[in-house]
């Protein structure tokens, strides 16, 4: 059966394999990511958000179950074709180097360039487009080590955009940013998903913003992992189960958490 989903998981169990055996972090995850949608992944610290993202981006193997990218098992992709279908933005700190912003964004064209990494006219068009959509033109010739965290986050998104993939996955892109920049990143991702028909999944702790801006949300708790539209999740009272603390209560009417 042909599905609309770009990425789909089937009974996915995630975790790590160590010498002592398998450490399972979450089990039975079934999610579907569709084109044109901004999807946020929320859950408490240590619940396995990053592990899930690492598993579906093929950085670490799944313990059990399957991840399908465009109806094909993700493990069956060669590194190069995977890079043409999926781009990532991680929380990792970049190693020190002299790269300028435009050089950094140009690295996104790697999966398409020849063995010497020479950029063609087409590559330059993609790079220019990524720069103008994310509005980082004024930073182009600066070194990435000299720009602010909020600016760098936009640049990393531009890099993922230059990679020209239907699916972009980001790990906590709004952490360490002030409210202004958080909103800017949220709106940018929303625009990319809705207007450029990208499928964008990212994890975040900014639940209020996520409820307002995402098309769908994936909520991870110790007991379950559920995906739905924000309003439906509110209806079902899923957010009440997010934190195991009676002092944090979800206010359905306003769509946000309050502390009692």
């Amino acid at each position: 059966m042909e599905s609309k989903a770009i990425l789909k998981t089937e009974n996915l169990n995630i975790g790590y394999t160590s010498k002592k055996g398998k450490i399972e972090i979450a089990a039975n995850i079934n999610i579907e990511l569709e084109a044109g949608k901004l999807i946020t992944l929320i859950g408490g610290n240590g619940i396995g958000k990053s592990t899930l993202l690492k598993t579906i981006t093929s950085i670490i193997p799944a313990l059990e179950g399957e991840v399908y990218l465009s109806d094909k098992k993700i493990a069956a992709y060669t590194p190069e074709t995977l890079a043409q279908n999926l781009s990532i933005v991680t929380t990792e700190k970049l190693p020190a180097s002299n790269l300028t912003v435009s050089e950094l964004i140009a690295l996104g064209r790697h999966p398409y360039t020849n063995w010497m990494g020479n950029l063609t006219e087409n590559d330059f068009n993609h790079i220019e487009n990524a720069i103008s959509v994310t509005k980082v033109d004024h930073l182009k010739y600066q070194k990435y080590s000299e720009i602010s965290d909020g600016q760098l986050q936009k640049v990393m998104i531009a890099r993922a955009l230059a990679q020209d993939t239907p699916l972009i996955i980001l790990d906590e892109p709004t952490t360490h940013l002030d409210l202004f920049h958080k909103v800017a990143v949220f709106k940018l991702l929303k625009k990319l998903a809705n207007e450029n028909n990208k499928c964008i999944l990212f994890s975040t702790h900014d639940i209020d913003l996520a409820i307002q801006l995402s098309d769908e949300m994936i909520v991870m708790t110790e007991d379950f992992c559920v995906q739905d539209q924000p309003c439906n999740l509110i209806e079902k009272g899923v957010f009440d189960t997010l934190f195991k603390d009676e002092h944090i209560v979800f206010d359905k009417a306003h769509g946000k958490f309050i502390v009692r």
Partner: peptide, 9 residues
């Protein structure tokens, strides 16, 4: 870094 490099194929 290695993870980004891998994601670039």
């Amino acid at each position: 870094g290695e993870n980004y490099a891998r994601s670039l194929g």
